[in-house]
């Protein structure tokens, strides 16, 4: 039996909003450690990895590890039926062919129950090496979202370069060009507004903005986003997931293969 209860059901709604347009079908791997998912987009250019720790749930029971394969747009449609303040409980019996979602409104007697069909998916897992990166940047997630959205009006790709204590996002296209330069901020008054840059070596790499704009759909999950880059390896864009109390619940990480000069 698998059962996971989340009082802040809105977190699950936000996670689905952040992955459903990138990946259509994926499997949740549920174990005593928590729920995780790894899936590539159909063109195999990007990958999303989600981790929700067992102790982040308000109730969590997983007698034996289960893989819940499902259509994410179906799950997302069902989650839209839950209110933002609802408690969400996921239930799956061992060897069942569906998952049950129970939504409970706070301070009300209303309960709704939905079922989503499970699928047998041929999941391919990629081994992601845990390597140090040349550049790590932490910046406000809404700022990253705006930069990616603005630059997509100029061109299809963004060139990210980092030197000393600044990071530069540049795009060019038929209409002209645009650059956004961010410098490391000194103030720690408002950590969520800060930009911090840690650099081992200067870097310059280009990425498709279409994917970065997909990743930015995770913005409501976290006030800060972390970008990790190294020469000739995929970019990592990470949003940590915290609950209202600020406790660490897990993360959503996106990996994006670079564009290269032919």
């Amino acid at each position: 039996m698998f059962e996971a209860k989340l009082i802040q059901g809105a977190i699950l709604k936000k996670i689905l909003d952040a992955i459903k347009d990138l990946v259509n079908e994926a499997s949740w791997d549920c174990s005593s450690q928590g729920m995780s998912l790894q899936a590539m987009d159909t063109s195999h250019v990007s990958l999303v990895a989600v981790q929700m720790k067992a102790d982040g749930f308000d109730k969590y029971r997983c007698d034996r590890s289960v893989t819940l394969g499902m259509n994410l747009s179906s799950l997302s449609k069902i989650l839209k039926c839950a209110g933002n303040d609802d408690t969400i409980t996921l239930k799956a019996p061992d060897d069942g062919d569906k998952i049950t979602l129970v939504f409970e409104a706070k301070n009300e007697s209303e309960t709704s129950e939905y079922e989503v069909k499970l699928m047998n998916l041929d999941s391919e897992y990629l081994g992601i090496p845990d390597t140090p990166y040349s550049v790590n940047v932490k910046m406000p997630s809404h700022k990253f979202q705006r930069i990616c959205r603005d630059l997509q009006q100029i061109g299809d790709a963004v060139t990210i370069s980092c030197a000393k204590d600044s990071i530069r996002f540049a795009a060019k296209g038929d209409l002209g060009s645009g650059t956004v330069n961010l410098c490391q901020t000194a103030s720690a008054d408002k950590p969520e507004d800060s930009v911090s840059i840690s650099m081992q070596e200067p870097i310059i790499q280009s990425f498709a903005l279409k994917y970065l704009n997909h990743f930015a759909k995770a913005t409501p999950l976290s006030p800060q986003v972390s970008l990790s880059l190294s020469p000739d390896v995929p970019l990592v864009v990470e949003y940590s997931i915290t609950d209202d109390d600020g406790s660490d619940f897990g993360y959503i990480r996106y990996y994006l293969a670079p564009k290269i000069d032919e």
Binding site: M40, S43, H44, V45, S46, L47, E124, Y125, L126, G127, I128, P129, A157, S206, A208, V233, P234, Y255, L256, A257, P258, K259, I260, D261, E262
Partner: peptide, 13 residues
């Protein structure tokens, strides 16, 4: 510029 795929960096486990 050409787009590379992730599978050229990460291998199936």
């Amino acid at each position: 510029m050409s787009q590379r795929t992730l599978t050229s960096f990460f291998k199936p486990t």
